[in-house]
Simulated assay, not measured.
Amino acid sequence: MSHSVYFGGRKGGATKTTTSHLVCLGAILHKQPAAYVLTDPDRRLKEEGRPYSVLDGRDPNDLAKILGAIDAHRNGWWIIDGGGNRPAFDAEMARHVDLVILPFRDSEEDLEAVTRDLHAYPNALAWPCAWPTNDKARQVARGLFEALSLAFPRRVVTSPLFFVNSAKELLDASLDNPSTPTRNAARRAFDIVSDTFDAYAQKGDEARGRAIA
């Protein structure tokens, strides 16, 4: 069975790209096949030394072929990086994937942006990413998290992905030997996404069951 996850949202710098790579690396570390799909035309394709597939979806025709392959192969994890400030593209991608995740950081600006996106994409989930590890900063960030969870019940991933400084190596031209902190963060990222995916699928099955009844 394939699992297609789209990381989107209008806010730039919300860690969509880093988080996408983390999830792919985590899948591989869990011995799950994974492919990272780049769609942002302003980014360069970086595939050297990566243990997961890196696919170029920057051209609409190429992206259409990739989406077709997802449906045909029905295997592994397909992680699609949406880039920022492309609401029309986000809306279109939401129609083609199993799960839309909106990463957001601990700032009022991120909170405002992800709030708008949650309204725009009713089935999307928000995920606190690059979350602070300092106790005082985490206490402040918790207020943002709780406010969003209250406004959008069951649509905020409850396990944050904490900031790891070394994770920036995922965006280097080559990824040959990720550091231990990055590997640990990748495993955690994949675990969270996998659990979220399963819970989301179960909720969808329950909704379909109620509709049939």
Rank of each mutant, 00 (worst) to 15 (best):
L148S: 06
H96S: 12
Q139I: 10
V157M: 09
T182Q: 03
D98C: 01
D98H: 06
V97Q: 00
D135E: 15
Q139C: 10
W131K: 03
R188H: 14
P153I: 03
S107W: 06
D198E: 15
F197G: 04
L171I: 09
N134C: 12
L170Y: 01
D191L: 10
A199C: 10
D135Q: 15
V164P: 01
V114E: 01
S159M: 09
D106W: 00
A130Q: 09
V164I: 14
E109N: 11
R138A: 11
V156Q: 01
W131C: 02
L161D: 02
L102C: 02
D135W: 11
G143D: 12
D106M: 06
A151G: 07
T133R: 14
T115R: 11
T133A: 12
D135M: 11
A185N: 04
Y200P: 02
A199K: 13
S179F: 03
R105C: 02
A185E: 02
R188S: 13
V100K: 00
F152V: 00
L102E: 00
V114Y: 01
R142L: 13
V193S: 00
T180H: 09
E109F: 14
E109S: 13
F145P: 00
F145Q: 13
L144N: 15
A91L: 08
D135P: 04
P181G: 09
T158R: 14
L125W: 05
V100A: 06
W131V: 01
R105I: 05
V114N: 02
C129D: 00
G143F: 08
